[in-house]
Design a protein around this nucleic acid. Sequence first.
DNA 1: CTGAAAGCGCTTACAG
DNA 2: CTGAAAGCGCTTACAG
Lengths: 353, 353
Amino acid sequence: MAVSIYEVAAEAKVSIATVSRVLSGGGGARVARATQERVLEAARRLEYHPSGVARGLARGRMNTVGLVLYYEQPSVTSDPYLGPCLDGVLAVHKRDHQNTVLFTKSSWEEALAHLPSYCNGYCDGLLLMLPRTDSAIVGELAARDLPFVLVGDSRDDPDGLLCCADVDNVAAAEAAVGHLIALGHRRIAAFCGDTVFCSSGQRLDGYRRALEAAGIPFDPSLVRPGTYFPRPGAVEADVRALWDERPESERPTAVFGFNDAIALAAADALRARGLRIPADVSLIGFDDVPAAAAADPPLTTVRQPIRAIGERAAELLLARVNGEAEPGRRALLPGEIIFRATTAPPPSRSRRL
Amino acid sequence: MAVSIYEVAAEAKVSIATVSRVLSGGGGARVARATQERVLEAARRLEYHPSGVARGLARGRMNTVGLVLYYEQPSVTSDPYLGPCLDGVLAVHKRDHQNTVLFTKSSWEEALAHLPSYCNGYCDGLLLMLPRTDSAIVGELAARDLPFVLVGDSRDDPDGLLCCADVDNVAAAEAAVGHLIALGHRRIAAFCGDTVFCSSGQRLDGYRRALEAAGIPFDPSLVRPGTYFPRPGAVEADVRALWDERPESERPTAVFGFNDAIALAAADALRARGLRIPADVSLIGFDDVPAAAAADPPLTTVRQPIRAIGERAAELLLARVNGEAEPGRRALLPGEIIFRATTAPPPSRSRRL
DNA sequence: CTGAAAGCGCTTACAG
DNA sequence: CTGAAAGCGCTTACAG
C-alpha cells in the first residue's frame, strides 16, 4: 500500500542501495550531489517514508525503549511513584527522540511470562519500574543480551552488572533518623516496608547507621516488619505492641515510617491513644507523597527525587544501548528531608518549666 | 545473538516453514502431531522466541497502537484529562494484549512533522489525544491508510469517515444550562474555551439549545470568547464587561464556564466584587477536575467520563484495526451533572421575605 | 502434511 | 560514486 524504496529507486533511476544511502546517510558512504538530489526529489514526489519496522529489522535498532511496570490499582498515572517517574522518562525520550512502549501487567509473574515478547527485538532496552526481589524477572533478563536498568531499585549486586537508578535509601534514612537523634530522641521505632523491595532493607541499614553513629545501642524490638501498603489497622498492631504493652520508660519517643503511608497510619493509631504529635511522639516518613503535605499536622518526611530518578534511568539506559556506558552503573540520587510539623524534641526535654 | 528460526528448524529437522506453522499456528495449515511436538521441544530447548519485528514485517501487524499527544507542562500523568484518559487506554490494551507506544511531543506542529514515523509500520493504529482543529494532522492522517481515532474530539465530519470517542458536549452543555434555567435564571453568561478545540463550539451549541428550548432569546453579548487555560486576570476582563459596565438589570445571574478552570476563575473575579456565590450569581463548570470538588464553595459542574472515553477510544481503534468496524464510528458518552454548591435560584426569586 | 521459494522493506559490506 | 547481492527473521501462498 505504502510506497517502498523500490518505487523511489525506479523514479530516481538508481538502485535501492543508493536510495538507502542518501536517505539514511549511514555508513559514511558518499553519494554524488546530483544523484542525491534526484533521490531526494523522487522521495518527496512519492511521499516516501522508510518503514520503521524494516529498518529496525535490518539495523537491529528500533529507537524504542520498553517500560515494564505492574500495577494493581486501576490508575498508573495517579500512582505517586509511577506517575512522576513516567514523566521523567518521557521527558528524556521526548528530548532524545526515543519511542516509549508501555508494557503494563497486573503482576510480576505476568510480566515475567511475557518477558520473551519484550526481548524479541521490539525494544532496544528495558526499564524495569520497581521490580520486586522475589520475582525472577531481573535474573531472567540478566541472562539475555538486552540492556536494562532497574528503576527505584538499587538492590545488592554481587556481580556488579546491574544498572539502576534510585534514591540513596541508606543515606536518606540515616539522615532522617539522624534528625530525630539530633532532636534528642533515643528510642526510635522503625516501621518497615515490604522486604521484597530492597529499599526497606536499605532504609533499615540507614536507621542502624544513624544509631551507631550516635552510639545508641540497636534494639531489635523497636523494628517492626511491615508493608508499604498498610491496610487499615495494620500499623495499629505495631503501635499496640510498642506502646500499650510496654512501660512508659520503654516506649519509643519517635517513629521512622519507611514510607508516608506507614507514618500517616502510625499518626492515626498514636492519636487514637491520646498521644500528641509531635509533642509526645515525633514522626518522620519517606517519599513525600502529596498526602504528606496535606496531612494534619503536615508530615516531616524524606523527599525522593522521583522524576529525576526516571530521567536518570532513561539516560542511563540510552547510554547503555548506545554502548556509551558499561554494565553495573548505579545512579543513586540523594533524598532530601522536608521539615514540616511532626518532629520535635522528646517530651522529657521539651517539658515546660 | 538470539536464536533464530533456522536453529530451531535444524534442531527439529524440519524446514523453517514448518517451525513457523507450529509456532504461529496461522494459515489453518495442519502439522502432524509428531512433527509438532518435535518443533515445540526444540524451541523450548533452544529457548527460542520469534522476533516481533521480523514477524511484524512479514505479517504487517505489530499489535501495537500509538498514542500521539502533546503537552507543554512537564507532567503528562498529572494532567487532569490526559492522565485518566491514558489509564483507560492502558486498561484496554492490558486486557487485549496490545502494546502502547507513546509519541509525546511539545506541540502539534512537532507531532505533524513526525507523523511519517508514526505511520511507518510501527503501529497498527493511532490514537490522537485532544487534537486541535487548527492542526493539519487529522487531515494528513486521513489521507493515509492507517486507522486512527480522535480522543476527546468529536469534530464535525462532513465525509463521515472520522472515528472518535468523546463526551457528548452538546447534550451535556444543554443539560448544564437547562439546570440553570430550571432554577430560574434567564440571563446566563457563557465563558467559552478555545475555538481550536471543537468542544467549545459544541458547548456553545448546547447552551443555545437550552435557551431555545426554554424560549429565552439568545443574547450574543452574554457569550465571551476565551480559553480553557485562562491566565490570571483573563476571566477578570469578562466579568468586568458583564458586571461593572452594565446596569444591574442587565447583568447575568449565572455563568456557564466551559471548563472548571474558567468557572473557578470567574468565581474569584466575582467574589472580588463582593458578589456571593451562589446567592448572587450561580456558577456551573465543565469537566469535574479535582479542583472543582476542592473549591470553596465546591463547584457544580459537568463530569466527563474521561477514563471511559479512553477505554472506548482504545476499543474502537482495535475494532478498526481488526476490520470489525467501519470508518466514521463515533462514540459519544454522556456527561453527568455533579450538583455541588455553586448553583441556586437567582437573587430576585430567592430574596428573603 | 511438508518444503522450496518468494516476499515483507530496508541496510550494508563487497566489488568495481 | 554506484550496483548486485546477501542478510535482518519471519510468513505464506504454491507445489507436491
